[in-house]
Amino acid sequence: MNVKNLLVLAMALLMFPQLAQTLYSPALGDIGRAFAVGPERAGQTLSVYFLAFAFGVVVWGRLCDRWGRRPVMLAGLALYVGASALALNITTFNALLLAQALAAFGAAVGSVVTQTLLRDRYHGAELAQVFSLMGIALAASPALGLFSGATLVQHFGYRGVLTGLLLLALALWGWCLWALPETRPSSLPTASLTQTLGLMLRDAGIWRSVGLVAAFNIALFGYYSVGPFIFARLGLSPAEFGYSGVLLALGSGLGAWLNTRLLKRGMNGEQLVLTAAGIAVLGGLLVLLLQHSWLFVAPMLLVVLAFGMAIPNVLGGALVAYRDRLGTAAALFGLMYYLLIGAGLSLVAWAQDLGWSLLICGLAALCLAAPRGFRN
């Protein structure tokens, strides 16, 4: 498989978990109506997704060091297909949460195994450039997810979203079966999970990276969790919420593009993450001031721009000291930050206050990214 085709497939696989999350977001209102639950409980589906996703990251990341990248990717996508089929046939909200957890567990393979595959193939500055390229693709996925999800909900309700995700997962499974190469080094030893966990728990740089990834993701996905209900309170439709994703994707794409340009001009990851954190604080403050008007969407552009700038640098530099155990280290790293994201989104869903949630996330990122607080 040539480099270009590999990168296209990697983009699709990295986009899949985000698509699964954001496609679901416009369906929250319909889920609430169908199962007679309030917005706080309906919003918990996203936090359940992230918590189950965190444990999936550990399992798939560990297995991809043992079994290889290709068979593990196929297994995870197959589990997602089965969970989506199950979700189409349930009748209670608790059963839906269980199906969502199983789907999230399977979808985690798209994140951890794809990142491991890229770290197998690329190193150093080249890896940072690849993650920046992936960041541009990831910027498009929320817009595509929100727009597609809103359209499916408008015509078919939440079951249309579940059916769309089932078909998407089937398509990716077939593509991987046909084209995904095996990149696991033949001489890679099986690293001890507990030893690797001990190393990472004592690594201050890992904890800073975990905090930064969590802060920027909670800010981004907090919008997808709370946004549908803000739009409803403002008298706006789910379709209009979906259209907002197109606007936000422009901000995230601009952030990823700026990141690529500034890396080429000599700025380092530490400077870019610090700049992104400052932008996130400004965006959160403005959303807090404007969240009782539809104009709050405008400063959300700053929040997603910050996400597009920061995340490629944090992910690209987080595991440079763990090259001899990439799958296992990526699994544990993902577990750490997805647990934080899941807990954070639970609080966001409970509080139903987007402005304060964004501001707190931005301030946390600024503290972590301050001089001597981050190492790329």
Rank of each mutant, 00 (worst) to 15 (best):
R261P: 15
A318S: 09
Q271H: 02
T275H: 01
I311G: 14
G278N: 02
A310V: 04
L295T: 14
E270K: 03
G253I: 06
L289F: 08
S293C: 11
Y338W: 04
L301G: 15
Y337P: 12
F296T: 14
N268Y: 08
V281Q: 05
H292P: 08
T275S: 02
L295M: 15
L272I: 06
V281K: 04
L254Q: 01
M300T: 14
L285A: 15
G284Y: 03
G278L: 01
A280Y: 02
V314E: 01
L335I: 09
R261A: 15
L286P: 09
Q291W: 10
M309G: 08
Y338N: 11
A256P: 03
L285I: 11
L254E: 02
L295C: 15
G251Q: 00
R325Y: 03
D324Q: 05
L332E: 10
M336W: 00
R265W: 13
F296A: 13
L315N: 09
L339N: 11
R325L: 06
F333I: 11
H292W: 10
G266V: 13
L282G: 05
T260H: 14
T328P: 03
A277W: 00
L288Y: 12
I311P: 14
V303W: 05
L274A: 04
A306W: 07
L274F: 11
A276F: 00
A256M: 03
N268R: 11
W257D: 07
